[in-house]
Design a protein around this nucleic acid. Structure first.
Lengths: 127, 127
DNA sequence: CGCCTGTCTTGACGTCCGTCGAATCAAAGA
DNA sequence: TCTTTGATTCGACGGACGTCAAGACAGGCG
């Protein structure tokens, strides 16, 4: 493990983040943007967006990699890479139970992102 | 991101898009993911997230490039490039009036993105 | 027209990203 | 222990991205 990987985001948005009056209500400060942007970035790939949805909409709230991988025309390592991206963005958690690894969505950050994008009637009517 | 990119999008999400039961409710189809991911991607940069917020939260619902640019330690062309990205993602509209160019948010797509990320109590309680 | 100011486009550079094959690690069985 | 199966990490390649300097374009004013 020694080598690189100095920075290891694994964004922790659950704790302190004062989180986000809507984007259209007050200007997002640079620090908030720096914290939240990586989450949007992680969702900015069609494969990861589908992975996120498959995980979040799974029956028991969790999905096995073994169910995720065959849903795409991509190799295992590539799916694993995308899952790592989602993990480091703080969007999902992973847990190994026996042979398989299960992924679970973190609803708090999803709510934060949704809140940031929410538009109140006032702003909506304005434009 | 996923390869291809058939033609430059200039995503038109306002019209037809069936748009999006919450991501955690039903699995997002590949076509929907392909259409929505670029919008998230566009928000996945701190500068663009701030630009989007500055535009959406502006007094009259629109912001002049001349007000946007000096808010960052970046050159004019770079800001212009980011604005173009937001435009091509369908997140903002631009209009030239005399000397200055004004940008205006498109609330519909913001609402769509927010709806996609929204978590119902059921799914929230589950995880 | 000519000049100035504001904005966008172009071309280039270095970095990051998505993808794969091969190697590695982890758990379960023979 | 050795083998098998599932998942991640490593190393590499090609393409996309963020940034800037320089040039081009548009509108206003003498």
């Amino acid at each position: 493990m020694s080598k690189q990987q100095v920075s290891f985001p694994v964004v922790d948005l659950n704790a302190d983040t004062p989180c986000c009056p809507p984007l259209a209500q007050r200007r997002v400060p640079a620090e908030t943007a720096a914290v939240l942007a990586p989450a949007f970035k992680a969702l900015g790939d069609p494969v990861r967006l589908q992975l996120m949805s498959m995980i979040a909409s799974a029956e028991d709230g969790e999905a096995c990699v073994c169910d995720l991988t065959p849903a795409f025309d991509l190799t295992g390592p590539t799916i694993s890479h995308h899952l790592k991206t989602l993990r480091e963005a703080g969007l999902v958690d992973a847990e190994r139970r026996g042979t398989w690894v299960y992924y679970r969505a973190r609803p708090q950050i999803l709510r934060q992102l949704a809140a940031l994008l929410s538009i109140e009637p006032a702003a909506a009517a304005r434009a």
